[in-house]
Amino acid sequence: MKNCEALIIGGSAGSLDVLIKVLPSIDIDITFPIIIVLHRKKGTDSLLSDLLSTKTKLTVKEAEEKENILPKTIYIVPSDYHLLFEKDFTFSLDYSEKVNYSRPSIDVTFQSAAEVYKDKLVCLLLSGSNADGVNGLIMVKEFGGEVAVQNPKTAQVDYMPNQAILRANVDEILDVELMADYINKLN
């Protein structure tokens, strides 16, 4: 996709290593924001932001409610909240029931973004041991967005990307080494 307006990366077990490998090669002049939804224990937010910010020159910060979503910025979804998108391109946080035993849920964020960004959205689903995110990918496709998954053969836990390939009409299946190049070309 060209002229992408938002990239959302979702992942669970085994995804952090992928991000650590991919982030350093992402161009600093990308013209869209990157939003990262990672399943993890609650209360580990600043650790994750700090760790990821050592891997890139892009600004890395936790997504805050009502915040304007800016390009060239990597937003981390806070633990224990769902992240939603408003029509005016700001974030909302939501502390409602877990979805797929998860909060944040990748499905919730993908689905909300699909409605707001429509065909200007790209979602990438990484390694993980449950199917959270797959319904979201299906909805992103229905709104005209593009969906990519980590090649299950390269995933520490292949269940999540396998489910995505099985159930969603995935556009790209990416080896970890090719992810940064894919992302850089979304400009």
Partner: peptide, 9 residues
């Protein structure tokens, strides 16, 4: 109310 959450509910 924030619309994104309300719509989802």
């Amino acid at each position: 109310y924030s619309r994104a959450s309300l719509k989802r509910r």
